[in-house]
Amino acid sequence: MKIIKVKDLGFKYAGTDFYAIRGVNLEIDEGEFVVLAGKSGCGKTTLLRCLNGLIPHFYEGEFEGRVLIDGVDTRECPPHILSQKAGMVFQNPDNQLFALSVEADIAFPLENLGLPREEIRDRVEWALKLLGIEELRKRSPFELSAGQKQKVAIASVLAMKPKILLLDEPTSSLDPVSAKNLIDAIIDLNRRHGLTILISEHRLTHLIPHADKLAIMDGGRIIYFDDPRRILKEDVLMYGISIPRVVEVAREMRRIGGCIPFRDIPLSVEEFISGLKGALR
């Protein structure tokens, strides 16, 4: 089932004279893991804002086309209802956290929904466990590391029980180990809990081997939307994407050798080594 349907979508922010995105068509299946890439200013953030209803409900401008999230037209559905279908995590977790404890932060939107106390407690518990941050529950969000803060931000979004998780460059300010931990947690949400994931990132190394689809945007449009193995066979560097280094090496091997000992472009060190060993056999 297509949980996200975008038809001829365009948006021009009020006060600007160009469309940030235009002619965007996109269909995503429930449970898919989609990575959104492209250079700065290509429209990634605007597209994500359209998917959780921040556009057109919060940002003013000219909206065209249609976005259906789990069958609901975003123009006809208020953001607080949409956030129970598609939750969004931003680049800077500080903008999303404000309460005195991690628990209170996660509970806050649930209290706003007017849920019964037990339900809130259960959901907070569930979200803490999902991200493996039970031990942080009593801590103040502001004394946590950047990576821990981002996990709390995700937990507070997940407590709304959305089917879709949208993430806008969530690891960009994290050091490599924290970034990888966060990505592992996001992959786990997809694999074990069936969440549909749409994540925009510049650093693709740890993400791309797990992606079902890669979407590349340029100039407000989606240029590619396919299995990353198929896309990365082509030269997509001009779209400002930092492809994994193993892909660069494999492509270069093919260039100088005419052919490569791989059937598929390897997306990780593991795949590269097993491809090479297979060819030597």
């Binding site: 250079k39 680049q91 460059e169 400002g240």
Partner: peptide
Amino acid sequence: EPTIGQDMLQ
């Protein structure tokens, strides 16, 4: 931290 949030071309 000059590369935070920067794409490959930048």
